[in-house]
Amino acid sequence: MDVVKIPRMEKQEYDRLIEKGYVCRIAFQGEKYPYIAPFLYVFDGSFMYFLSTKYGKKQEYFKKSPHASV
């Protein structure tokens, strides 16, 4: 399998990409492996806001370690 590099993008290109979507994946520090969960989001041009439930493993993992990757 060949390594594929993601091309460099300017901030405006990233912003356009984020504005077009509404679902992302957030990876939390799980027990042995990362725990990845889908989230709905909105982007206001400066910040991303995520919609989440108040139950499930994501809440548990976030309380243990707030370090996450979107």
Rank of each mutant, 00 (worst) to 15 (best):
K63D: 15
K58Y: 12
I26G: 04
E19N: 01
H67V: 11
D44E: 01
S65P: 05
E60A: 08
V70E: 13
Q12I: 04
P66M: 10
E31P: 10
Q59S: 06
L51A: 06
A68R: 09
M9S: 13
I36N: 11
L40Y: 02
K58P: 08
K58G: 05
K57T: 04
Y55N: 14
R16V: 02
D15N: 14
Y61G: 06
D44V: 02
K58D: 11
F28S: 09
I36D: 12
F28N: 11
K32N: 14
E19Y: 00
K57E: 14
Q59I: 07
G21I: 00
K32T: 10
Y61A: 03
E13Q: 08
I6Q: 10
M1S: 07
V3T: 10
E10A: 09
D15Q: 15
R16K: 13
Y49P: 03
G45H: 00
Y33E: 15
Y55H: 14
F62P: 06
I26E: 09
I6E: 12
L40K: 00
M48N: 03
G30S: 14
Y22K: 01
V23P: 00
Y61S: 12
Q12R: 06
A37T: 08
E60V: 11
V23C: 00
T53R: 11
S46H: 11
L17H: 06
E10D: 10
Y41S: 01
S69L: 07
I36M: 12
E13S: 01
K63E: 15
Q29E: 15
Q29G: 13
K11W: 12
P66G: 07
A27Q: 07
G45Y: 00
P34Y: 08
Y41N: 00
Y55V: 13
H67T: 11
T53C: 12
P38V: 02
V4C: 09
S65G: 08
F62E: 15
Y41K: 04
L51Q: 03
E31T: 14
E10R: 10
Y14C: 07
